[in-house]
């Protein structure tokens, strides 16, 4: 029985996407951006929502460049993660916006629940890092 549960658990962990490098740039204003790396599992899935007790709400955003060269961000319904592929939520692309985030300091750890279209809820811990570090130099 225990073996069966273990086998099931390990099957589940490889079927869906896995998340690493979750980090929040230390915010200066009311909102913060959370970045992370997703590696798709055996089956494609889509990130469709997120929530945390550390913010009023969490929105999936994409930053895009407009025709006139200005940049803006818009809310998206989902971030698709194809099977086996790596998708990075990174500055200038996708991010999770923590709206009206609570005061944070570098080193804080924030639990965020990610909701997947097929995989359901997954809780990840994001570390607060200096804003100058989110781009990697």
């Amino acid at each position: 029985m225990a073996l069966a549960v273990l086998a099931l658990a390990s099957a589940c962990s490889t079927a869906g996407p896995s998340v690493s490098d979750a980090r929040i740039g230390l915010p200066a204003g009311p909102n913060a951006a959370l970045y992370l790396t997703v590696v798709g599992g055996a089956e494609a899935d889509s990130l469709v929502g997120a929530d945390t007790s550390a913010a009023r709400s969490v929105e999936l955003h994409e930053t895009t460049m407009n025709d006139d060269g200005t940049m803006g961000m818009s809310e998206v319904a989902a971030v698709e993660v194809p099977a086996g592929e790596t998708v990075r939520l990174e500055p200038g692309g996708f991010h999770l916006m923590l709206v009206d985030v609570e005061p944070l300091v570098v080193g804080d750890e924030v639990d965020v629940t990610l909701t997947w279209e097929h995989g359901g809820d997954m809780t990840v811990t994001a570390e607060v890092v200096p804003a100058a570090e989110v781009m990697g130099g």
């Binding site: 200066a28 204003g29 940049m71 989110v134």
Partner: peptide, 13 residues
Amino acid sequence: LSCPDICPVHLAQ
């Protein structure tokens, strides 16, 4: 100020 992605990162760099 409400810009979480571009502005603070660009300035922090």
